[in-house]
Design a protein around this nucleic acid. Structure first.
Lengths: 226, 226
DNA sequence: CTTGGGCCGTGCGCATCCTCGTGGTCGAAG
DNA sequence: CTTCGACCACGAGGATGCGCACGGCCCAAG
């Protein structure tokens, strides 16, 4: 997922960036309200936006209000150091979807982010993204940049399997488990064949390389799409 | 793993309990919706929850919805006797992660459970850290700061062995035992070779020194990453 | 029936990785 | 300081795993 973090405390911002990156997300960080507003309005699309309430320049409240005024419905998770009801009400009024008081544990944050993404996904779920490569498994569509790409059912399933966890290696056996019904009766090399076919469709014509081989393990989707 | 099974057909419930236990999991079983809901909300934490859709009392749909409303993101696998699209959409809307129609083979079920647990476990657990050095053994990823580092399978295994106990010296023989299958038939110097290779990748390019030699014993990971 | 597309298995050429040997360097003990 | 054992760097060879083209099979549409 693409996540925007607007947070002026550098230590916290950095640890959020690391933690979320380690979870396989693409993270942009802004250290003040001006940059945060710019990215929120034009840097996206993001799947989730984390906003600190107190910031140099426009605060989280203002950023969220502006986003909603522009018709942007990206889920917003508000972070704040205070814990009064006053703040919570304000944040939610501004159009925030959830609210977290500092200090918080990273595990809790990750859970809230998943929950937000899940709820948002209800209306337009299932689109996977890695750089300029977009996959809509339900609608059976795949695009690189502005060009549509035709995929067969198996190709699409394998690609989805990889794009569900961009940046992480997926074992060949795991792909078999997820894509084939009777994985035990099937030659694992079949995965190589489909990866080869996918590369010919989504990489070669664009001079890219988004599906990387992890020797002895399986494959990995380049988070930036190659 | 801890697994919750909510299933009212006693025969099926029992065979699931036996099969999953045989796979090494800890299994709790509920035979109706009320007990299932109680366990799901308070009996955990579970790694995976299996929900039958049709139950005495609250159905799987309701249980899943309640779990999500409580912020619980435990992976849910929905079981159902029907096979209409209607059911699938309902289950996924409720926040289920996957969906299996009866009858199903146990092998398929086990594979789906593995896939769910893997996806969930991907975020957070299992990542090792020492300063700005981060290792994700499952996803086969390694980062120093904001730069990705490519490691071979052996390199990664040796590094994981050291990072599991940052600051503590690990005997060369212990590394052999953990990383190699037949440690007795192998030249112990091989460990030195891989440490050397690791230092070239994770230390030298950054001017750091995170893998320290403990003369006469083995090696030690600098807790701060060097 | 014929045709075409998707799916799966096989085999060979090739890239990568693993392992070990050699010779040089470092560090601790006396 | 000297000595000896432990450690390190480097490169060659074999072993392993991968990429990809090809051909047969099956099903569905015409």
């Amino acid at each position: 997922m693409r996540i925007l973090v607007v947070e002026d405390e550098e230590g916290l911002a950095e640890s959020l960036r690391r933690g979320l990156s380690a979870d396989g997300h693409l993270v942009d960080v802004a250290h003040d309200g001006h940059r945060g507003l710019d990215l929120a309005l034009a840097g996206g699309p993001y799947d989730v936006v984390l906003l600190d309430l107190m910031l140099p320049g426009p605060g989280g409240h203002a950023i969220c209000t502006r986003m909603r005024a522009h018709g942007d419905t990206t889920p917003v998770l508000m972070l704040t150091a205070k814990d009064g009801e006053h703040d919570e009400a304000e944040g939610l009024d501004a159009g925030a979807d959830d609210y977290l008081t500092k200090p918080f544990s990273f595990v809790v944050l990750a859970a809230r982010i998943r929950a937000l993404a899940r709820r948002a996904g209800a209306s337009g779920r299932g689109t996977l993204q890695a750089g300029d490569l977009v996959l809509d498994p339900r609608g059976r569509r795949c695009r690189r940049g502005d060009r549509d790409i035709e995929l067969t059912a198996r190709e699409l399933a394998v690609l989805a399997c990889l794009m569900e966890q961009p940046g992480r290696a997926v074992a060949k056996q795991d792909i078999l488990d997820e894509v084939w019904d009777t994985p035990q009766h099937i030659d694992p090399n079949i995965v190589e064949v489909y990866v080869s076919s996918l590369r010919k469709k989504i990489d070669a014509p664009f001079g890219r390389r988004s599906i990387l081989t992890v020797h002895g393990t399986g494959y990995r989707m380049a988070p930036d799409g190659g």
